[in-house]
Computed example of a mutant assay.
Amino acid sequence: MTAMWRVLVVFCTLSVLSLSYGGDIKAKSCSDVRQAYTAKGFSLVNVPHQEMSGEHLRVCPQGYTCCTSDMEDKLGQQSKLEFENLVEETSHTLRTTFVSRHKKFDEFFLELLDNSEKSLNDMFTRTYGKLYMQNSEVFLDLFTELKRYYTGGNVNLDEMLNDFWSRLLERMFQLLNSQYHFTDDYLECISKYTDQLKPFGDVPRKLKAQVTRAFIAARTFVQGLMVGREVANRVAKVNVAPACIRALTKMLYCPYCRGLPGLKPCQNYCQNVMRGCLANQADLDPEWNLFIGAWVIGASLISQGH
């Protein structure tokens, strides 16, 4: 069930199940209205004690009424406020879920990357000592670029990994032939034949496949969480159209003006009004469900280490 459908169900359930206290349909007194009106936090100044002619009303029926023009305006504003608050509250869990999941995954993946860099650095330092330390920037640059890719940087993974192996080959070739001096053109020529020479065997191909798969999945997943959060934030900020406010006021508060503050709308009526107010959000429903489905599958695959 989508967040917008939950808004509809919750709002209409609350409207129908709200406690209604008696008001005689034939009664001319506005005492019940005054009690309900002040319970909403409004002042009773200029609120009538008895029904009066309602020609001044613009939203509610213009028969005998307990509402002044000011009351009708305030009840319209109250309808809008209650609707906005309900949408905000209902979508809050969804939004906080995206935020917390993004934070946890981001911290987890960056920690994983940092630990990998540290482990490799410690192992190579123990194994090759000063020789590695003098050339460690090749590996440091690799991890810097991997982090930049993951965080949304404009990095071509394939080109970056190819460049890493080319740089590593040039360094090793120079170290193994330290008695000679090689020009940049000569070293560049050597790096061009890396695929044919295969000085590192099949390691570059296997590593490229593993790194590319892992980082594309991680970056796509974390960006999906960010997109979901932004969509949820925007959808939660409902632009309440004047027609929606009128419909909400008629449904929720025009009974006040008729002297029947306890009268509540039927379920179908309430749902129709809510569908109209959430029409724009409802258009997102198919795409949103596809996004959530893909996100759940992605989370499952990553958690399984695929």
Rank of each mutant, 00 (worst) to 15 (best):
G63I: 06
T65C: 02
K74S: 02
C66W: 00
L44I: 07
P48L: 01
C60P: 03
V47E: 12
V59C: 13
C60K: 00
D70V: 13
V47P: 13
R58Y: 00
K74N: 06
M52D: 06
S69R: 13
H49T: 07
P61S: 09
S79Q: 08
S69A: 15
Q50N: 11
E72T: 01
G63N: 15
Q77L: 09
S79I: 07
K40I: 04
K80A: 09
E72M: 01
K80L: 12
F42T: 08
K80C: 07
L75M: 12
D70N: 13
R58L: 02
G41F: 03
M52L: 10
K74W: 05
Q62G: 11
Q62T: 10
G76S: 14
Q50Y: 10
V45L: 11
S79Y: 08
Q78H: 11
Y64T: 06
Y64F: 05
M52Q: 15
T68D: 00
Y64H: 07
P48N: 03
T68V: 03
V59E: 08
C60E: 01
S79N: 06
T65S: 04
G76T: 12
S43T: 02
E51L: 11
E55N: 15
S79L: 09
Q78G: 05
G41W: 02
E72Q: 00
N46T: 02
M71P: 04
C66D: 00
S69G: 12
T65W: 02
G54D: 13
V47F: 12
S79K: 09
P48F: 03
K74V: 05
Q50C: 10
Q62N: 08
H49M: 10
Q77Y: 11
T65M: 00
H56I: 15
F42I: 07
Q78V: 09
M71N: 03
L57R: 14
L75V: 11
L44E: 02
H56P: 15
G54P: 13
G41V: 06
D73R: 15
N46C: 02
E72D: 02
E72A: 03
C66T: 00
Q77A: 07
G54V: 09
Q50V: 13
S69L: 14
K80T: 09
L44D: 02
C67G: 06
L75I: 10
S43E: 04
P61W: 12
S53F: 03
G76Q: 12
G63Y: 05
C66F: 01
R58T: 05
C67S: 08
S69Y: 05
D70F: 08
T65D: 02
E55D: 15
C67R: 09
M52C: 06
E51Y: 04
K40D: 08
T68M: 02
H56T: 14
S53C: 04
P48K: 04
C60H: 01
K80N: 10
L57P: 13
P48Q: 03
S53W: 04
